[in-house]
Design a protein around this nucleic acid. Structure first.
Length: 385
DNA sequence: TCACCTATCACATTTGAAGGGG
DNA sequence: ACCCCTTCAAATGTGATAGGTG
């Protein structure tokens, strides 16, 4: 059903270029059309786009060309199943400003550079029948952005630090509709949440984090703390680096490293990590969890607490150790708690009570001052400290 | 000369397609 | 035909450094 580039070349490529003259340069109007009625397009992963949009989406541009993330994917309805259509994208400047990122926000920094002749990205399945386009997601994930004004690969050329609006065009590709003439039937749509600023390196750390968390190819940058804690665990105890407990750590806990000595006076988070989907989250019934240690007064030991992020936005704290003899959520900051420590040595019969977490049964217990490292396994039967 | 901003490159890591062997 | 494994190109953000500008 899909039609290749060759067919496009012979049938219509020249005409598609010719169509540029008919396409509006106005990025603000969301939809315009001529000779086509009833088409609807829906943005795939709209929620993800919105997440990026709320912190101002940035797209990397490189000399070699860089794909967009999130990918531009759409679902189309309302096409004539038997008629042929060409689907294509272009990306147009939103305004005539150049932008800068300072004080954690984007602002206008001057006049835009001269606009580059806009290139079109024709979907490789073009021309395809309405049935073909409607029965599956239409993905423009292979579209690449470049800042190379002499780019020979047909990538879309943009200026760094300028704001752009991607647009979708659906063009009826048959002679009857006057294809290639001024009567060509077309439909154009812009999704406001896909506006982005082109950059050569990310400016806003929030965007970097969103990309890392959502782009599978950036998976290698997730959970860097895992690697860090592993590195730390290989160091002599005096060289442990401790992270203040109030450090924002939004992710879930799956692995644990405990130094054998901790400075006193403040709670420290000595634990961290999560790389696998669902780890921690499932263990703790879908609530975000993090672990940290409290020291006792003579620096000789640490206790483990688990912090639950409640839906009311207030963190509650659980102490699963026997010493505390409290298995209730604490409605207070950990600093308000009396430090408690593991009073038993390894092999002692004292039970660390993990019963609050029915799936979470430690195979071993800690002793005071004992260096403990290991991981909370995803599978309840393989918890291993 | 200096500070600041932006661009570029090598790098480590992951993904996923392709190909070979059993 | 199917499964498993290996290989490799492509995609990705990082961090150091280069280059441009005022």
């Amino acid at each position: 059903m899909a039609c290749g580039e060759g067919e496009l070349s012979s049938l219509a490529k020249g005409n598609v270029e010719h169509l540029r003259g008919h396409l509006s340069d106005d990025p603000v109007s969301l939809t315009s059309h001529q000779g086509i009625e009833g088409i609807q397009v829906f943005l795939h992963e709209k929620d993800l786009w919105t997440k990026f949009h709320t912190v101002t989406t940035e797209m990397i541009i490189t000399k070699a060309g860089r794909r967009m993330f999130p990918s531009y994917k759409i679902r189309v309805t309302g096409l004539n199943p038997k008629a042929k259509y060409i689907l294509l994208m272009d990306i147009v400047p939103v305004d005539t400003h150049r932008y800068k990122f300072a004080d954690n926000k984007w602002s206008v920094s001057g006049k835009a550079e001269a606009a580059i002749l806009g290139r079109l990205y024709v979907h490789p399945d073009s021309p395809g029948t309405g049935l073909h386009w409607m029965r599956q997601l239409v993905s423009f994930h292979k579209l690449k952005l470049t800042n190379n004004h002499l780019d020979p690969f047909g990538h879309i050329i943009l200026n760094s630090m300028h704001k752009y609006q991607p647009r979708l065009h659906i063009i009826k590709a048959d002679e009857k509709s006057g294809f290639g003439s001024s009567n060509t039937a077309f439909y154009t749509h812009s999704f406001p949440e896909t506006v982005f600023i082109a950059v050569t390196s990310y400016q806003n750390h929030a965007i970097t984090q969103l990309k890392i968390e959502n782009n599978p190819f950036a998976k290698g940058f997730r959970g860097n703390e895992d690697l860090e804690m592993h590195r730390i665990s290989q160091m002599p105890s005096k060289e442990y680096v401790l992270v203040p407990q109030n450090t924002t750590r939004p992710r879930l806990v799956s692995s644990v490293q405990f130094p054998n000595r901790l400075p006193h006076s403040a709670p420290y988070m000595a634990v961290r990590a999560s790389t696998e989907k669902g780890q921690g989250k499932d263990l703790f019934s879908g609530i975000a969890v993090r672990c940290f240690c409290l020291t006792d007064a003579d620096l000789s030991g640490a206790s483990v607490f688990l912090q639950q992020q409640q839906h009311d936005g207030l963190p509650h704290f659980l102490c699963p150790t026997l010493t505390c003899e409290r298995n209730q959520p604490y409605g207070a900051e950990p600093a308000c708690l009396q430090p408690c420590m593991f009073s038993s040595s390894r092999g002692d019969t004292d039970e660390t009570d993990w019963s609050f977490y029915p799936e979470c049964l430690p195979q071993q217990r800690f002793s005071t001052g004992q260096q403990v490292s290991g991981s909370l396994s995803y599978r309840p039967d393989s918890l291993d400290f």
